[in-house]
Write a protein that binds this DNA or RNA. Sequence first.
RNA 1: GGGCGCGUAGCUCAGUGGUACGAGCGCCGCCUUCACACGGCGGAAGUCGCUGGUUCGAUCCCAGCCGCGCCCACCA
Length: 887
Amino acid sequence: MTELPKAYDPAAVEPDLYEDWLAAGLFSADPDDEGEPFAIVIPPPNVTGALHIGHALTNAIEDAMVRRARMQGKNAVWIPGMDHAGIATQNVVEKQLAAEGTDRHELGREAFVERVWEWKEESGGRILDQLRKLGSSLDWDREAFTFDEPRSRAVREVFVSLHEQGLIYRGNRLINWCPRCHTALSDIEVDHSDDVGELARFRYPFADDPDGGIEVATTRAETMLGDTAIAVHPDDERYADVVGREVRHPFQDRTFRVIADDYVDPEFGSGAVKITPAHDPNDHAIALRHDLEVIDILAEDATLTDVVGERFAGLDRFEARRQVKEELDALGLLLGVDSHEHSVGHCSRCDTVVEPRLSDQWFVEVRPLADKAAQAVRDGRTRLVPDRFTKSFLDWLDGLHDWTISRQIWWGHRIPAWYCPDGHITVTREDAPTACTECGQGGLVQDEDVLDTWFSSQLWPFTVFGWEKPGDTTPELETWYPTAVLETGYDINTFWVSRMLMIGLWFLDEVPFRVIYNHGMVRDQYGKKMSKSFGNVIDPLEFIDEFGADALRFALFQHSSPGTDVPLAPEWVEGAKRFTNKLWNIVGFGLRVLDDARPGALPPREQLALEDRWILSTLERTRAQAEDAYATWDYARISGALYHLAWDELADWYLEAVKPRVYGDDPDTKATAQAVLARVLDDLLRLLHPMIPFVTEQLWRALTGAAGGPESLMVAPYPTGRPDDLDEDAEAGFAAIRDLVTEVRRFRSQNGVAPSARFELTVTSSARGVLEGHRTLVTSLAGLSDVTFVDALEDRPGTSTIVLDGGQAQVELAGLIDVDAELARIDKELARAEGDLRGVEGKLGNANFVDKAPAEVVQQQRDRQVELTRTIEELTAQRGALADLTS
RNA sequence: GGGCGCGUAGCUCAGUGGUACGAGCGCCGCCUUCACACGGCGGAAGUCGCUGGUUCGAUCCCAGCCGCGCCCACCA
């Protein structure tokens, strides 16, 4: 058989294997094929740059899922694709333009969008390369993009349908506005953080009594320029006679009233609230109840408009905040400015502080959709893994507000709505409608806005299967929808998962996925979130180049349990690399000793040796453990179980145990050993393949002689149960041997007996039967010259006793140890230890040292004193025992 | 303010109602033994956050507390 290179070199193996899989069409699936359907759609990565380590985790997990399903004979498909990622991608390109000293407005809309497409090609190409390097077995023939033609048609159909159903509407409402991105945002695109700000208290003078007035407070002083009322609680007696009175605006020539509303908390501050209907959601609600005037003071870039008056017009909001306070102070109206911690909304894409702003936007009325989705979760038609995410998922659905879907950016699906000169709205499937549906006029102009990127991503689980409009059906949809599992990080359950669930149920009347599997976030070795600002992000390609894709994957699996964050350090990946190398050498050993034996049928059970039955039993038990862990996609357990099997059981014990036979001359026992070894290696590679596809494929080809191409481990059957292999007697028997061997090794280590030194052992044990029956095995593993079994040990001088599990072993010390040399060694060590101890005690006896040295250092010396004292005691005891021998 | 999770060896994490079997990395000692020094063998190291309770018995169950993290939330 082929000799393998001595060490595993991933770079020499991985690229070719991927090409080979591709060429053989092993990633391609056909809806008409046999087998239980099993589909996963990739969470389409944003074309904003390159994949980060979190993507590596997602893709490793999904690849393992789909590879295992494929090996199990399922009709498995994994759909690739990317997301155009509206605002995020536009921001990337805008930054590029800024670096070039220009901006999108200078370029114009058409040229800008063209430019983003160019970037999409570049970024997308890089992502594609990364996905391949990771080993992702994606069906590339089915690659989709959220902004390609078929997906765009579906987006328009969904928009128009929902509009026809009255679930999409246009309205003038208070929305979240990002002054930097110049667009509306949905609620979940706003990240709240508790920031330390200021609470400014000031007085609004009464219109008829400039020296009197009412105290209010605000964190955004500039909003007072748009105040149109002051509200107090109806039951607040302090203000009972103030309600209805007018106050005068200090900077503008207008007055407004004090009103009463339940919303006000009398306990907070003065108990009176200034009302800015255009820039605060609560105030807006109050304005509607009381029919207040609404004054919009903010421009798109959050500078103040002319309505605020000459003094402040044109100022940036933060500058205005400062100056308003100054002016109030100058007028003697400012009562104080206190530090105040409060929640501030930031744009999730650029971190700019968002402003509530009144504007015309498109909305989805989500209630009916959300109710359906929540019902599906409650019915168990789809379930979350781990289950603990279910509650917050449902809470979120239950409390959902209407979804702002229009964005004032250029990169995205243009809203299929047109306006006639009279402002009537025509929503249509047509590309270029010529007549207003309301008045029949021509000269229609399309809405400038584009859709929230999630509006198209939500259609992903069915548009990738050819769905373009309600009622569509395709072979792919019939076979693969609902998909088996939606695997993604818990951070996008609200953004993406919930929306897919809502819209999938709405248009296809069936959940888009039966399981929502949430993996955790990848963190660094200190548990810190990886982020650009921390400077701790690592490019997956760096790991792959250094350790191989399998190593990166395995390291991620080793720490990945459902919903649990995954810490990752270079050392972890290095450790996983060592595992792949170990595997390489395990199989390499196998190849050297198997002669022409290939995995196949085993000899009858009675021909198997104890160690054979033990390893087969262990293999089956581990396989079952992995199987159980797969039921919950607990990759930390799965990888842990298989790692343990390969390294601690197979490599450390079985391979050593089997050497006497495979290197021996007895053709029968040799053939049996070879058959078992081949079987175990074969199964191990199959079990590991979904997680570490490259190294296992390469080794499996060497082991089985498979030619590659269609002869691939990728499509070899995944091991199913062999319950007959479970053998408790063999496990117990081998455990007894193992115990004896380990105790002998410990004896050697503690007594300075070289591993190469042979000696005799006299043993008494409750496991005598097994041990005696496997004399060769015992002596070879423990490095003994001979072993004798007795009913009871005699108490003999000059011997040492080794305690066993259920027995004892006796070693003749004479001759085993060169007593004089050992005595000399011990004396030398003793002298050194005593010298050290004197030094330490000298220091500790020095009052100067004890008083002045840092407590830590003193303690260090004390610890060392204790340690040295103990060492000396032990050495002295050893010396005594040895001296007895010579006398 | 609400919800979720976490606090076990120096580090990152497993783990179970019955003396912590812990793992990887790190550390100490021995070994270049014919698969592997990306290795082998042996070893040191933990009041299982704190306080109560349930129990024959809790690191694991319950309650409270302390600390940390995350998510959600329209209190000026």
